[in-house]
Amino acid sequence: MKHFIIVALILLSITSCNYAQQPTSIKSELPERISNYEDWKKEAESNIRLNPKFGNAVKSEEQKEADQRLIDDYLKQQGSHHKASEVLVKLGFDYLYRGDVRTSMYRFNQAWLLEPKNENVFWGYSAVYFTLGNHEMAMEQLNEGLTLNPNSSNILTDKATIYFAKFPTSNDPKDLSAALDLLNQSYKIDSTNQNTLFKLSVVYLMKKDCKNALKYYDECNTLGGKPITKEFKTALQELCGKK
């Protein structure tokens, strides 16, 4: 039972702590919130901004002109396509953390306009789908991001999250093994990624390997322990005697 609880606690932390910032004064473009994938899919039929890369839709001249104005404005502000894209990716995650999934996707799509080959845009797309409960679509976006940058620690870690999130229902050890392989890849790329360290601790705890669960917990905690929840710390104490 504790394994189920542990997984539930970390599902909300699929997006890496690198983009987790303190709330700022952001207002949603639209007050209505979408909380499930079916509603999202229905609205996306008439709102291309809810689809990754705008659903590859053929845009009107007016839409193309608006896109170009956006690109020009952000280039003027940030000085390069990459910097501008990253600013919009961060804004996308800020909105996502506030529960405004719609505006979050708008920002990720704007980030894509600025830099179509920015792998972090696809990291953002994946986070939206994961939030809506569509893990298959989330995985598709992560895989597309990895084709652009196979060494993205953030994307590898979130791909691992999808695998171990399946474990409570699949009860298939292969899911945990796949998650662990991806997390270890991520760790080799960036051993300071707190999200990776936290989830390594989680997966090892799910595997009842207290030695490694404590090892990666301590590494994460030493770096600030940003993703660690009180509930997970309690579970680690109960199962592994962590003080």
Rank of each mutant, 00 (worst) to 15 (best):
F4G: 08
I5R: 07
L12F: 07
S16K: 07
I26F: 14
S28M: 13
P31W: 07
D39I: 03
K42H: 08
E45M: 10
S46T: 15
R49C: 03
N51E: 13
N56W: 12
N56Y: 11
A57H: 03
S60C: 08
E62W: 05
Q68K: 13
D73F: 11
L75Q: 06
L75I: 05
Q78L: 09
S80E: 01
S85V: 14
V89I: 06
L91Y: 11
G92C: 01
Y95D: 08
S104M: 06
R107P: 00
R107N: 09
A111W: 05
E115G: 02
P116C: 08
P116H: 07
E119G: 03
N120V: 02
N120H: 13
G124E: 02
F130W: 05
L142F: 09
N143L: 14
G145A: 04
N149Y: 07
P150R: 15
I155S: 04
A160F: 07
Y163H: 12
Y163G: 02
K166I: 13
S170N: 12
N171R: 13
N184H: 12
K188P: 00
I189R: 04
S191Y: 15
S191D: 15
N193G: 14
L197F: 08
L200S: 07
K207L: 14
K211L: 15
L214E: 12
E219S: 06
G225F: 13
E231V: 01
K233V: 08
T234D: 12
C240F: 05
K243S: 15
K243R: 15
